[in-house]
């Protein structure tokens, strides 16, 4: 049984790491602020979620597993609101917006 749980942990944590990598590459390589924001808020959030799912079976008490979910929920809330606020701030200040490969 524990082998199965360990497998779950390994698979999900690795998937989480992959999405963090994707979010980071997006942050570094995308052309303008808004596209980077998209990469950031989506990928790192999914990464955090997968890591949380991967870690939940390893918790000794089910309540601790729920606490992990709370951490993930707060992380998502933060990413969503920050994404909206920064995007609006960028829009207001009239920064250059990437119109596609000319």
């Amino acid at each position: 049984m524990t082998a199965a749980l360990d497998a779950i942990t390994v698979v999900f944590v690795l998937a989480g790491c992959f999405f963090f990598l994707a979010g980071n590459v997006g942050l570094l390589r995308f052309p303008d602020t808004l596209t980077r924001l998209h990469a950031l808020t989506k990928a790192d959030n999914l990464g955090l979620g997968l890591v949380v799912i991967g870690l939940m079976p390893r918790m000794d008490h089910p309540l601790s597993a729920l606490k992990l979910l709370l951490v993930w929920a707060l992380g998502m809330l933060a990413a969503a609101t920050v994404g909206q606020l920064i995007a609006r701030s960028v829009l207001r200040r009239g920064l250059p917006i990437w119109k596609g490969p000319q």
């Binding site: 707060l74 809330l77 609101t81 909206q84 606020l85 609006r88």
Partner: peptide, 13 residues
Amino acid sequence: GVMAYLGRLLPPI
């Protein structure tokens, strides 16, 4: 707005 929403949701937590 979103800021007011955050200001309402986070303090209880």
